[in-house]
Design a binder for these strands. Structure first.
Lengths: 235, 235
DNA sequence: CAGTGGTCTAGACCACAAG
DNA sequence: TTGTGGTCTAGACCACTGG
């Protein structure tokens, strides 16, 4: 079957056609597909257009591309799920719930040993330690336990962290170049249970997050969400 | 300061320079940055190169771009964390552990009501129901509870699912166009506790996943991981 | 060595939305 | 209306890597 009238000229259309061939198994896992020049000829578009489409599919994990070796259908499609890590307030308000925030404690302490190692801080570096409760519709939604490297963001000492959450303040006044984030489950401590209005030992969804700005640690936080919390996305 | 000799000619360099200006707050949140043509002139490269760099940063959530309105530094940098959703076996072996798999049960049942609604299936559609245990270094690592729409993948009835996991079989023999995935925490049931070698009620990390191929539901699975499991990525 | 993807360029036109 | 990003093109050169 020749294609003459219905040419595929934009990269979204190219991508859709390639996806069709993948889903219908016309191109099977591990198989080598035609190179960019050939596809461009078949589709009646420029090679750059094919490149754009295939590059996006490779980034999504559906294709494996290597110079000289060509493009193959991924054998184990490691699908990339992208999670939007937004500010808690925005997330809560986005669900139509009212948001509230309470600062529970604020201290300035020398960094505990394990944290000092993880943040690669010098001896006895002073850290700001915050504990806060985030509420949704008046109920405990998330408990935040955060350490901030005061040396990296001196202005935080003058910030009014009883009205605005530390995370939100940091987003507006500092910035980071890299970070790591981990997701896990943990049992609620007695303290967390009280704050979140659940039983001690209940399963909580936990996010651990540390951010850096060019080798300078900014902050490290543990966010424990009330039971029932679910982080969702599409693939 | 004029740039004459040290021009920025490739998109990675452009991106790095833009990132530098963001991190040093030379361009602040909410601020309008120069348009593509101006930046191309400043950097001494083509507009397409600037476009490639800025588009990537916008996809990462650092910039907001709108036709005619121009490009602004994102006010609330909704950072996108991309998680690699790979096959359990690959993940376990990637950590240098030995992997094993046991099929616990296999039935063919009419779909329970809530699942039938979620998968948009017809009345009394028959589903394959599987329960399996995945082991890492001989210890319970994850309990899988999966429903498969046999009508969508008839060949699954003849598959030997006692040697290869259903997920792995599906990856190789079926494929999906869309899916949703959710992460949460749950307390271990007595059964799960026995399989995973933990106490009943322990906090488990849970992944729920449903996949489709053009409006045709393929499979829905619940994966409950042993305590201590952590899903990690960088931002 | 040679074939493949990766990228840059200059120019062009288009789609969208702010004013 | 008009300025902005979004995209396509044809051609070119480069970088990597398989054979």
């Amino acid at each position: 079957m020749t294609r003459s009238s219905d040419e595929i000229r934009n990269w979204q259309a190219v991508q859709a056609e390639v996806l069709r061939r993948l889903h219908t198994r016309q191109w099977r896992p591990g198989e080598l597909i035609p190179n960019e020049a050939e596809l461009a000829r078949e589709f009646g578009c420029a090679r750059a257009t094919v490149n754009r489409a295939l590059r996006a599919l490779a980034e999504a994990g559906l294709l494996d591309r290597r110079r000289k070796a060509g493009t193959r259908v991924a054998l184990h499609p490691v699908r990339k799920a992208t999670l939007d890590i937004s500010i808690v307030r925005i997330e809560v308000e986005g669900r139509g719930q009212s948001y509230d925030y309470r600062l529970l404690s604020r201290d300035e302490l020398p960094a505990p040993e394990p944290l000092r190692v993880r943040l690669k801080l010098g001896d006895g570096a002073p850290l700001l330690h915050l504990r806060a409760l985030h509420l949704a519709d008046g109920n405990g939604h998330m408990v935040e336990d955060r350490w901030i490297n005061a040396a990296a963001v001196p202005a935080i000492r003058d910030a009014d962290l009883s009205r605005i959450s530390a995370n939100e303040w940091l987003v507006m006044h500092a910035s980071f170049s890299e970070g790591d984030i981990g997701f896990s489950a943990a049992s609620a401590s007695a303290d967390e249970a009280r704050l979140l209005g659940c039983d001690a030992g209940a399963a909580l969804f936990v996010i651990d997050r540390t951010t850096w700005n060019r080798d300078l640690a900014i902050t490290s936080a543990r966010l424990a969400f009330a039971p029932g919390y679910r982080m969702q996305t599409v693939i």
